[in-house]
């Protein structure tokens, strides 16, 4: 059982956040606080806006031309959507791992080093790469083939490479958008173990379709659902243990017991 205690500080919080794609409201009125150095899982049925929410936390939605965020997302006390905040810095601090492993078509070494280099890292690059790969539990597997293409790795290894790549720029928060959905159970297990390790240094927010994963790997869980106007909204947010054992909302109960979703 994972620890459920918090030290009372929050890494990031959303206040009355709405996300629109053009005129369509994809997510409405989300208010959520993510405790630092904890793993928070976002669960919910397909189309309820989990990915939209998580992508709003490091302004990845900016890449979608029509996307628009209302409300505020507070990180270190300031709204990341305010005009004087550069999304580049936001993403540097809040990293992201995607659903499908997407290593760069470069060497394993370059995959890890690139982010650090463009962010102006001046220190020992070899050490940084090794450290990141060790943290991502990939070092032993790739240390002899750092100059090989990232694509030469298996799917699970690629995903850990992506995690190493994210770690290498020393973010504070790592967003994970269904990081294991494209992986087999063994690889999934390794990622889950890795996430537990990473918790010591990073705040982790993870979107998952897999309720078992949420239940066994997260400290907090937020359950989203879709409204009649197809907009996603937050149904219930609690410590994972409580949410799964004692859901306060009927919909949550139905969902976690597999009656819909």
């Amino acid at each position: 059982m994972t620890s459920t205690s918090t030290n009372g500080t929050y890494a990031i919080e959303a206040n009355n956040m709405h996300v629109f794609y053009g005129s369509f409201r994809a997510v409405k009125d989300i208010s959520l606080k993510f405790p630092a150095h904890q793993i928070t899982a976002l669960i919910g049925p397909s189309g309820c806006g989990k990915s939209t929410v998580i992508r709003s936390f490091n302004r990845m939605n900016d890449l979608v031309a029509t996307a628009r965020v209302e409300g505020e997302v507070l990180y270190q006390g300031s709204n990341i959507y305010s005009h004087n905040v550069d999304p580049v810095e936001v993403r540097r601090r809040i990293g992201m791992v995607f659903q499908k492993p997407n290593p760069f078509p470069k060497t394993i070494y370059e995959n890890v080093a690139w982010g650090a280099r463009i962010n102006g890292y001046k220190g020992d690059m070899d050490g940084l790469v090794e450290g990141a790969l060790r943290q991502a539990a990939l070092w032993d597997e790739v240390k002899d083939k750092l100059q090989q293409s990232g694509f030469s790795l298996s799917g699970g290894q690629q995903q850990r490479l992506c995690i190493a790549r994210t770690i290498a720029v020393k973010p504070e928060i790592i967003l994970m958008d269904e990081p294991t959905s494209a992986l087999d159970p063994i690889a999934t297990l390794r990622i889950e173990e890795l996430i537990q390790e990473l918790k010591k240094n990073y705040t982790i927010i993870i979107v998952t379709h897999n309720m078992q994963q949420a239940a066994r790997a997260s400290d907090y869980t937020a359950f989203f659902n879709m409204d009649t106007d197809r907009a996603g909204y937050l149904v219930e947010y609690d410590q994972t243990n409580d949410l799964f054992t004692n859901p306060k909302n009927e919909m949550t109960e139905q969902y976690i017991t597999g009656r819909f979703g």
């Binding site: 580049v88 993403r91 990293g95 995607f98």
Partner: peptide, 15 residues
């Protein structure tokens, strides 16, 4: 060029 590549780059804090 797959969009995932752009996202990967941007997510690392690249301009």
């Amino acid at each position: 060029v797959p969009n995932s590549l752009r996202q990967a780059g941007m997510a690392l804090g690249a301009t």
